[in-house]
């Protein structure tokens, strides 16, 4: 073994030790990157040793080459192992920062009006009502005639209607579902019909040409106005989760009920004491109700001498506005994400 070879082998051993000791003391990835380039880079220490190949004779070249390759592989492996250990623990425990933002999965949501509809459905389902639906494009017959609203009757003025061709309208209420249900079912009937309705109202803070209603109907022997009052009061107390809610009925007029009533809930803001929202009356107007008019029974072939029933309506936007304290109905239909994500 020539002297040059011996010297070079000693140099290899020294470089290996030097690198290993540096690796042990390195505390972060940056230092390791530096070590890597110092030793294994194009101008690094190992590359410099390869330049010493010329010092030895041809017979000794394979021996030195193997030693150099082994050095390169060893250092490469050791540096990578060390680097990997830093990469597996990118943070030492004292740099763990729980206040970094979370990795939030995409979140969906249900529309507030339909959440109210869900609640209404749940409350009435628990009281034994079945949920029914019907078309939004209705015939004049179901929307008006069969509800005792004849053509050329002033009560047609009570609702501004969108008309379609062929004696059809966009339903102005979900009451036609009552008729459709009674046509196919004999008493007892207990149903609610939540759904979309349409009226020719120019949009403003309290009007929208599309809105949602829930209609209720109960027909059986001996159903009375007192039953209607009981059901509406039970609903009021459940939807606003307040046992002290009171309900007031006032006489009114609807062609499809007799007697007809408007019903009010005690003001949820002031508990009926009187405030700005209820205009100091202590009451919030909700919607209409009444005993099914015998003329309506005539259209569905129920005998009004045997059966009686009550019907009630409610505007879901109205309830949502009260529940969420929204001040403009139009916001429900704008679908602004900043609104939707609140529910």
């Amino acid at each position: 073994m020539s002297e040059n070879l011996q010297k070079t082998l000693a140099e290899i051993a020294r470089i290996e030790k030097q690198c290993q000791s540096l690796l042990v003391t390195a505390t972060n990835l940056q230092e390791l990157e530096k070590i890597k380039s110092d030793f294994l880079g194009r101008k690094g220490a190992v590359q410099a040793l390869f330049a010493l190949m010329g010092r030895v004779g041809a017979d000794e070249k394979p021996h030195l080459g193997a030693a150099l390759n082994r050095l390169k592989e060893t250092l490469q492996a050791e540096i990578e192992t060390r680097m990997a250990s830093f990469q597996r623990q990118p943070m030492a425990i004292d740099s763990f920062d729980p206040s970094l933002p979370a990795k939030l999965p995409a979140m969906g949501s249900l529309h507030p009006i339909l959440q109210v509809m869900d609640e209404v459905k749940q409350i009435f389902t628990s009281m034994g009502f079945r949920v029914e639906e019907g078309p939004e494009i209705e015939s004049d017959y179901y929307n008006f005639e069969a509800l005792n609203i004849p053509a050329y009757h002033p009560s047609r003025d009570m609702q501004d209607t969108f008309y379609l061709s062929g004696q059809h309208v966009l339903r102005t209420h979900t009451s036609p579902v009552q008729i459709r249900t009674m046509e196919t079912q004999k008493p007892p009937v207990r149903m609610i019909a939540p759904g979309r309705c349409f009226r020719k109202d120019t949009p403003d803070a309290t009007h929208s040409p599309t809105f949602h209603q829930c209609e209720g109907l109960c027909v059986d022997r001996g159903v009375s106005f007192a039953d209607l009052k009981g059901v509406v009061q039970a609903f009021a107390q459940k939807i606003f989760a307040d046992k002290s809610m009171r309900v007031r009925f006032r006489p009114s007029f609807f062609p499809f009920t007799e007697p007809s009533a408007e019903y009010d809930f005690s003001c949820i803001f002031c508990k009926g004491k009187g405030c700005r929202v209820c205009k100091n009356t202590g009451w919030l107007e909700i919607s209409g109700a009444g005993m099914v008019d015998p003329a309506v029974f005539g259209f569905v072939d129920y005998d009004p001498e045997i059966f009686s029933g009550y019907a009630f309506g409610m505007g879901l936007e109205r309830i949502a506005i009260l529940k969420y304290r929204v001040n403009d109905i139009r916001i429900f239909f704008e679908n602004d994400i900043r609104f939707l994500e609140q529910f």
């Binding site: 999965p105 995409a106 979140m107 969906g108 949501s109 249900l110 529309h111 009006i113 339909l114 939004e136 966009l170 979309r196 349409f198 929208s208 040409p209 599309t210 429900f332 239909f333 679908n335 994400i337 939707l340 994500e341």
Partner: peptide, 17 residues
């Protein structure tokens, strides 16, 4: 409706017209 909300979509309610 609940599935779609669970899949990360927000339910909207638009005018039919």
């Amino acid at each position: 409706r609940r599935l779609l909300a669970g899949l990360g979509l927000r339910e909207t309610l638009s005018l039919s017209l």
